[in-house]
Nucleic acid binder design. Structure first.
Length: 989
RNA sequence: GCUCGAGUGGCGGAAUUGGUAGACGCGCUGGAUUCAAAAUCCAGUUCUUCGGAGUGUGGGUUCGAUUCCCACCUCGAGUACCA
């Protein structure tokens, strides 16, 4: 009986679905284990073999944990709001919900074929109103909260109001907007409701504010910093400009320090932690206040080097700085304005690409040094960013290279405040070796002491204080898109009001068009039924807006990361209509034990999700401060593209004959091609030239001359599905493909393609889909092969040819259980015979290795281990049930279908999925002798079998008298003999 | 520029606390079986001038280094005027 994977896999996939084998319960005596994959965006292209890599790894781990007796939660769902479906809707008019539904169906079909042990009863979709009801609910919670720096957590806005009522805002230590105006309790009470609401907005954790945003005209929406790559949009690569807009923002900056500190408490990859650390960008220093001469204005700067304050020789403001227009002198006005206009025109991208050009303009105004009272010229320059710190710097050219370059360029003095340091060529930025001089009270002090003293003195004169600055900005939360979560917000006199949570969800309205309106409003501006009736508490027709009981609803939608910032918690109780999840569920599941996904989410999803988790923790909604204890980034699977080498013969004097004879593309061997690229045309290439010239003569009766320089030498991507394991191209398949039908091969021989590793993509014809692999080799072969390719975290190239290795292994495994007549299933019930302990040894070393491998997420090596085990047991002709039964449990997490089938044949009526994992017994591995490697000066020269219980002396005697030792030493006396019993022998001499 | 990661046969990779470098698989070579092919099975496969040499390069620690330390080179990822 042969290994019929098609039948076996269909059978067990059906069995698991019908029996709900992997359904997890929310209360159990068993210990819980939560294994999570980053849920996918269901794109129209479907999955390629790179996508399931992480899912296979997590599935192996989940199945392993079930064998280990855990109650495992292993859910899957879809991050189903997003741009591609909406872009498609704009182009075709098809509702994004339909596109999304179709794509999800395709994903599900593909996932099911791979045999994952997901609990599908818990599936979530972020675009489903039952789900985004809770996204909206969290938004309302954020709106109703403020961040109290004293308790260091989010608190209900009511506690803030009661403080305002008692003491005004002077004593409040909150994270808030920068431009807070002080008021007393009496003043607060005297404010009208609108004024009070405006003030509260400055404290809420989600707030409406005019912010400089990254506007992408092509996409018609704003983008978050992490959605921009190299100055263009991550999706589509469109240009991005700065623009001021009224937007919802999330006060993530309130959590900057906790997001940083708690990285130490989670087992996440160091590179990922590093990139979050850099993204948060904490820097410690001081704020210093410089008075502007002749104005009552002051310039507030942030500096990490208050110790260098006596080295200040000018100040630089960002061109966008609000003081610029106020302080610029009439003489400088024209120049300054021209400069501002010029910089505003430059796109973010140009500004980034061109960091070497130094530009700036003097404003004509002077600041006053806080200690020396000397005048300091105030410049503007675009090397100062409006968005960082206060948008102003105190320039210390001797200690900062950018300030130095600026000073040199504009001939501004560069005072030296470092003892014994030469600054004639460049600035001196080394903090450690610094001794300050020419600096009044800081003279003679090293960096740390000078820093402390400078801050102390600044505080004393009331012109500065110690400060910690973060690069992390508050996150813009509004998108001018259709296919996203609507805000549960309506506007009364322009002030946002939350809809009561009991009326959620606020479902997306239908629209005619998915584009912005003619007046430039977001797509929801096209909705005709999009007003809130505060009497009926329902969404009503816009015509009913009366500005007394019926009000307009928010037109923006939420960004992609909203729905993905808490889905891991919702999986715990995904169908709960009354709560985000039940207390029972969250108390049992707590948090994610293992999270697997791509590293590209380091500063997006993974930072926002940590932020929301901390907020929900503060509010007592979740019991854990961090949502995932351990995280692993799976590496990318790249494609191995295949190339043929095209040669188009270039000819002279062709102009007048254009169109008469079409140039032929010849396919030449790689070695001839490579030589030709270097200018060396071999005989074969020359024969092609001759052939082409005579073809011109024949077809068009034209005499042409070859022009070497016009010859086209181009590698052409060919579909990897046309290539066999030996890199031989199936020419017929290729020529039948319309894209390649004009090619002509110069030789009849088989054609060896060139190969190159590239990203897997349609345009490179190197995409391999899991479906075709499952069809040809089966899901178990695919699962094993994906793991076998290499370490999970590393990126590695896919090469379909290699799958015959794991497929062959499964056949051998099957055969091991089918040694009966005509390949019938056969096992013996007798215990392994005495003296045939070899099988037990094989089994137990396999148990040990596989268990260690899974615990270390080293899945590639356990596949090798299985191969070795099956090779050995086959050689031993092992048919013992007790061995084979244990073996198949070991294999089961990796190749679950064949495992279920063999388990069933072994006489079990229940699924193998919860069969106890085999117990390792070291006594089976005890050896009586050891084959010692004998090294001379560290080089292994021969091996020597000696009893395990030999003492050092016995070993030395045996080795030294051995003929090969005598031969190696060739008469020399060894200086030293190192013996590590049970390990090695090394003779030095 | 800065931060992080990685360099081992023709290829993917293994060597878990320093102890037999190249496990396992692909590919390749030869053989068996077959009318033939596929499939299957067996043997070989780092290089070599057959002494040895060898884990990107050069140095160091050690009886012994792919593994630890220093310097450098190359590739990849992230980030980018962050004051």
């Amino acid at each position: 009986m042969n290994y019929d994977f098609t039948e076996i896999e269909a059978k067990w996939q059906k069995y698991w679905a019908v029996n709900q084998t992997f359904k997890a319960v929310n209360n159990s005596d068993k210990e819980k284990f939560y294994v999570l994959d980053m849920f996918p965006y269901p794109s129209g292209a479907g999955l390629h073999v790179g996508h399931p890599l992480g899912y296979i790894a997590s599935d192996i781990y989940a199945r392993y944990k079930r064998h280990k007796g855990f109650n495992v939660l292993h859910p899957m769902g879809y991050d189903s709001f997003g741009l591609p479906a909406e872009q498609y809707a704009i182009q075709t008019g098809q509702h994004p919900a339909i596109t999304t539904e179709t794509n999800i169906a395709r994903y599900r079909e593909q996932l099911d074929k791979i045999g994952f042990s997901f609990d599908w009863s818990r599936e979530v979709r972020t675009s489903n109103p039952d789900y985004y009801k809770w996204t909206q609910w969290i938004f309302i919670q954020l709106f109703n909260s403020w961040y109290n720096n004293d308790s260091n957590k989010a608190e209900d806005i009511a506690t803030l109001v009661s403080i305002f009522e008692k003491e005004g805002n002077e004593t409040v230590n909150a994270v808030s907007d920068e431009d807070i105006v002080a008021f007393t309790a009496e003043e607060w009470k005297a404010f009208d409701t609108k004024k009070q609401q405006e003030i509260l907005l400055q404290y809420r954790l989600t707030y409406l504010a005019d912010t400089e945003v990254n506007w992408c005209p092509a996409l018609g929406t704003v983008l978050a910093n992490d959605e921009i790559v190299n100055g263009v949009s991550e999706r589509g690569g469109h240009p991005v400009i700065r623009k001021k807009m009224t937007q919802w923002s999330m006060r993530i900056s309130a959590y900057a320090q906790r997001l940083l500190d708690d990285l130490a408490t989670i087992d996440w990859p160091q590179p990922l932690k590093d990139s979050q650390t850099n993204w948060i960008g904490r820097s410690q220093g001081a704020s210093a206040v410089f008075k502007v001469k002749g104005h009552d204005a002051v310039i507030d700067v942030f500096t990490t080097r208050p110790d260098t304050i006596f080295g200040v020789s000018f100040m630089t403001l960002a061109p966008e700085h609000e003081l610029v227009s106020k302080i610029t002198t009439p003489e400088q006005k024209a120049e300054v304005e021209a400069y501002i206009e010029a910089t505003a025109k430059r796109s973010e991208r140009e500004r980034m690409a061109d960091v070497k050009t130094i530009s700036g303009v003097f404003t004509g105004a002077f600041a006053e040094h806080p200690f020396t009272k000397e005048p300091i010229p105030i410049w503007i320059g675009d090397y100062v960013l409006a968005g960082y710190g206060t948008g102003a710097v105190m320039a210390v050219p001797c200690g900062d290279q950018r300030d130095y370059d600026f000073a040199k360029h504009f001939n501004i003095p560069i005072p030296n405040i470092f003892e014994g340091v030469d600054i004639s060529e460049e600035a001196f930025a080394d903090k450690e070796k610094t001794i300050i001089t020419n600096s009044d009270f800081l003279n003679g002090l090293p960096y740390k002491k000078a820093m402390k003293l400078a801050i102390y003195e600044l505080e004393k004169i009331g012109q500065g204080k110690g400060k910690i600055n973060y690069r992390l900005r508050d996150a813009v939360f509004s998108r001018q898109r259709y296919w996203g979560e609507p805000f549960p917000v309506y506007y009364v006199d322009g002030m946002p009001q939350m809809i009561d949570a009991k009326h959620l969800p606020i479902a997306l309205p239908e629209v005619e068009k998915y584009l912005p309106t003619e007046t430039g409003e977001p797509p929801l501006g096209n909705a005709t039924v999009w007003a809130w009736d505060t009497v009926s508490n329902s969404v009503v027709d816009n015509s009913k807006i009366n500005n007394t009981t019926v009000w307009p609803l928010e037109l923006n939608t939420m960004p992609g990361w909203a729905g993905s910032s808490f889905y891991f918690n919702r999986y715990m109780d995904p169908n709960n209509e009354n709560e985000i999840f039940s207390k029972t569920a969250i108390d049992y599941w707590q948090d994610v034990d293992l999270y697997i996904g791509g590293s590209e989410h380091a500063t997006g999803h993974l930072l926002y999700a940590r932020f929301w988790q901390k907020f929900l923790f503060d509010k007592g909604v979740v019991p854990k401060n961090e949502f995932a204890k351990k995280l692993i980034n799976q590496g990318m699977i790249t494609g191995t593209s295949a190339f043929v080498y095209g040669f188009g013969v270039g000819v002279k004097n062709i102009d007048e004959n254009k169109g008469v004879v079409k140039l032929q593309r010849y396919i030449v061997p790689k070695y001839s091609f490579d030589k030709a690229v270097k200018g060396d045309f071999d005989d074969l290439m020359l024969s092609v030239v001759e052939k082409e010239l005579s073809r011109f003569k024949e077809v068009g009766n034209i005499d042409v001359e070859w022009d070497k320089s016009l010859s086209a030498l181009t590698p052409l991507h060919v579909d990897v599905n046309f290539i066999d394991a030996s890199n031989v191209l199936d020419k017929e398949l290729l020529l039948n493909d319309i894209k390649y039908s004009d090619l002509e091969f110069v030789s009849e021989n088989e054609y060896i393609v060139g190969r190159e590793v590239e990203k897997m993509s349609k345009s490179k014809y190197n995409v391999v889909s899991p479906d075709s692999i499952c069809e040809e080799y089966g899901a178990d072969s695919l699962r094993l092969y994906e793991m076998f390719l290499g370490p999970l975290e590393q990126s590695k190239p896919w090469n379909t040819a290699g799958i015959t290795g794991t497929h062959g292994f499964l056949k051998k495994l099957w055969k091991l259980y089918h040694t009966g007549e005509n390949g019938a299933f056969y096992v013996t019930n007798s215990p392994p015979l005495e003296g045939s302990g070899e099988a037990l040894k094989t089994l137990h070393k396999t148990i040990k290795k596989v268990e260690e491998d899974i615990e270390n997420f080293s899945f590639n090596t356990s596949v090798s281990t299985f191969m070795i085990a099956v090779n050995e047991l086959s050689a031993q002709k092992c048919t013992s049930r007790s061995i084979l039964e244990q073996l198949i449990i070991l294999v089961s997490p990796y190749a679950p279908h064949i495992a279920e089938e063999l388990w069933n044949k072994l006489g079990h009526s229940e699924s193998i999925s919860t069969a106890p994992f085999p117990k390792f017994d070291a006594s089976h591995l005890v050896e009586s002798s050891k084959e010692y490697p004998v090294s001379f000066n560290g080089k292994m020269r021969f091996k020597l079998e000696l009893p395990m219980d030999f003492s050092k002396d016995q070993i030395e005697e045996a080795v030294m008298s051995h003929e090969k030792t005598i031969e190696q030493l060739a008469g020399r006396a060894p200086k030293k003999v190192i013996i590590v019993p049970g390990k090695i022998i090394n003779i030095v001499g």
